[in-house]
Computed example of a mutant assay.
Amino acid sequence: MAVPALEIAVQDAAGARAAVAGGAVRVELCQALGVGGLTPSAGTIDQVAAAIGGERVAVLIRPRPGGFVYGAEEIALVASDIADAVGRGAGGVVVGALTIDGAVDTGAMRAWVDAAGQADVVFHRAIDTLAAPETVIEDLIALGVKRVLTSGGAARSIDGVSALERMVQISAGRIEIMAGGGVAVADIASIAAAGVDAVHLSARRPADATAPSGPGGGAPEYDVTDGGIVADAAAALQLSGDGRS
């Protein structure tokens, strides 16, 4: 069986280079990973696309932290940001919208799929806020979504393996199931055994921050992509693939 692809969430060009050098097939580019990720700047998209090739880059388009129920202005903003990211060479965009009663917002998603054109559309972990995330897989397939990032509805992917297995069965190869959410290298073999198409993690570590901080300046700490963690994750995936072949 094929080895699941490795995707790493990164925040800058240095992180993207470290991810690819460590064995990642692609990256999800965002900013503010500490709040679950937000839309990166245009300049960041340009730098990362130049560093590793835009076809490897899926850009998170999320206009604010908080929930995933969006108004008309926000939906229009996301559509504009999608078109801009794709125009800058991004091979994919990562989005997600829900209705107030806990269903996929198909109107928003259709607008965003249209804005993406030929680029891949990924539905992110908004799916994991639903009581039974596997029940919307058919909706996402019908919308033309390429893959879905999910922990199986659990806080950590390793705890959602049963749901991930159900999603893989439902998908029947029609949409990629990518496991993500609290993934540790030690979990990868068990997660891969669920039959997922890809595994996603952030591979972060705290930077050695020495810059001053204070009122209005924020904390000096920030995270960077750890190429060693990426390499360990890639090796774990390769071993899982060898074990399934």
Rank of each mutant, 00 (worst) to 15 (best):
A5Q: 13
E7K: 05
I8C: 02
A9R: 01
V10D: 01
D12V: 08
D12L: 02
A14G: 11
V20P: 08
G22K: 12
G23I: 07
G23Y: 01
A24C: 03
V27I: 01
E28N: 06
L29K: 06
A32F: 09
G34T: 14
G34H: 14
G34C: 11
V35K: 03
G36N: 10
L38A: 10
L38K: 05
T39G: 04
T39R: 06
P40S: 00
S41I: 14
A42C: 13
I45F: 07
D46S: 13
D46A: 15
Q47C: 05
V48P: 04
V48R: 04
A51M: 10
V57G: 02
V57C: 04
V59K: 12
R62D: 04
R62H: 08
R64Q: 14
G66A: 04
G66E: 08
G67R: 12
F68V: 02
V69W: 13
G71Y: 09
A72G: 13
E74W: 05
L77C: 09
I82N: 03
D84E: 15
A85F: 09
A85E: 02
V86Q: 08
G87N: 09
G89D: 03
A90S: 00
A90I: 01
G91M: 04
G92S: 08
V93L: 06
L98F: 01
T99I: 05
A103H: 15
V104K: 10
M109N: 03
M109S: 03
R110E: 11
W112K: 06
V113D: 01
A115M: 00
Q118H: 14
A119P: 12
A119E: 12
D120T: 13
D120F: 12
V122K: 02
F123W: 06
H124P: 03
I127C: 14
I127T: 15
D128G: 14
E134Q: 15
E134M: 06
I137A: 00
I137K: 11
E138C: 01
L143C: 07
V148Y: 00
V148M: 05
T150W: 09
G152C: 15
G153P: 01
A154S: 07
A155W: 06
I158P: 07
G160H: 08
S162G: 00
M167H: 04
Q169S: 14
I170W: 14
S171M: 10
A172T: 07
I175Y: 02
I175M: 11
E176P: 09
E176Y: 09
I177G: 09
M178E: 04
G182V: 05
A184E: 15
A186C: 13
A186P: 11
G195Q: 08
V196P: 00
D197L: 07
D197Y: 03
V199I: 12
V199A: 02
D208H: 05
P212G: 12
P212D: 15
S213H: 14
G214N: 00
G214Y: 03
G216M: 06
G216A: 07
P220C: 13
E221T: 09
Y222G: 01
V224F: 10
T225H: 02
G227A: 05
I229Q: 05
V230T: 04
A231V: 07
A234I: 09
L239C: 13
G241E: 10
S245P: 13
